[in-house]
């Protein structure tokens, strides 16, 4: 390398990004033409630079968004707790009776499992045992469902989220469960509860009425988070019938600009 090569090093990045002015660029390239060292060095570096532009990085999973929302919500609750005393009292009161529900739930499950085992042990062989087992597991199932429906009515958002998460344990979600989930998805005041519900419903997307309900829900969501989450879901499900609802959503006046872009992208990816 010649003595004055150093000054071109500084300009390398501007050159490779096409940020040099025309005269500077001409001067830079004139030097390259006359300096074999720089020519070799810089063109090799430029090639690697271009290759880097094509490199792929893994994308974060959808969990990140859900977890963040839950964190934000918890954070907001704890901040609120720090502030008003009346609110603090309210929370304290909730705290007193809330944990009993899940505790009761676990206790009953343990009890039933225990009885189950006891019967299995005692009755020994025979078809009667099967019948009893079936009846018992149906009872457990029903209990879970009752539990879940009760939790969805709970005043605390985190309890409602817990209720929603129980749906993954219910094998055959019936109409009552699905209706309850949609009522939560479309009306719950807390965005995290709605997001978890969306997640739960996505897992039930093999039911045609769930898909239908999700499409109808698009125009009912007014939070940007929900709007973009539901767009992700529709894309994941490749649900082309949602395009009309998205177009309708785009007509809303106060739609968040980021969401608007996302919805447009989703529409082009679906059709």
């Amino acid at each position: 390398m010649k003595m004055n090569c150093g000054q071109y090093e500084e300009k390398f990045s501007a050159w490779v990004n096409n940020e040099l002015g025309p005269s500077e660029r001409a001067e830079f390239e004139k030097h390259l033409a006359g300096c074999e060292g720089c020519m070799q060095e810089f063109t090799a570096m430029q090639q690697v630079w271009d290759l880097m532009g094509e490199m792929e990085t893994p994308q974060p999973s959808a969990n990140v968004q859900v977890k963040f929302n839950a964190m934000l919500e918890t954070f907001k609750e704890s901040e609120a707790e720090k502030k008003g005393t009346s609110l603090k009292e309210q929370l304290a009161r909730l705290w007193q009776w809330q944990p009993r529900w899940p505790l009761a739930y676990s206790l009953v499950i343990v009890l039933i499992s225990f009885t189950c085992g006891y019967f299995a042990f005692r009755t020994g062989s025979g078809g009667k045992q099967d019948e009893q087992m079936k009846a018992l597991s149906a009872q457990v199932h029903e209990l879970k469902q009752t539990m879940m429906l009760a939790l969805l009515e709970n005043p605390s958002a985190s309890e409602r989220i817990r209720g929603v998460s129980y749906t993954s344990e219910i094998k055959h979600a019936d109409k009552e469960v699905i209706d309850a989930l949609f009522a939560t998805l479309n009306n719950d005041p807390n965005v995290n509860v709605r997001l978890s519900t969306l997640d739960a419903l996505t897992h039930l997307a093999s039911h045609p009425e769930v898909r239908q309900g999700l499409i109808q829900s698009i125009v009912q969501q007014d939070s940007p988070l929900m709007q973009s989450a539901i767009a992700d879901v529709m894309l994941k499900l490749q649900e082309k019938r949602s395009v009309n609802s998205f177009k309708q959503l785009l007509k809303q006046k106060n739609l968040n600009p980021g969401v608007k872009d996302k919805i447009r992208q989703t529409i082009t990816q679906l059709i």
């Binding site: 994308q59 974060p60 990140v64 968004q65 963040f68 929302n69 934000l72 954070f75 907001k76 901040e79 940007p224 988070l225 973009s228 968040n256 980021g258």
Partner: peptide, 16 residues
């Protein structure tokens, strides 16, 4: 605090 939701939306992929 809800504004943080928007900042998250905008930046979490790059941060990741």
């Amino acid at each position: 605090l809800d504004r943080m939701g928007l900042l998250f939306e905008r930046h979490y992929r790059a941060l990741y």
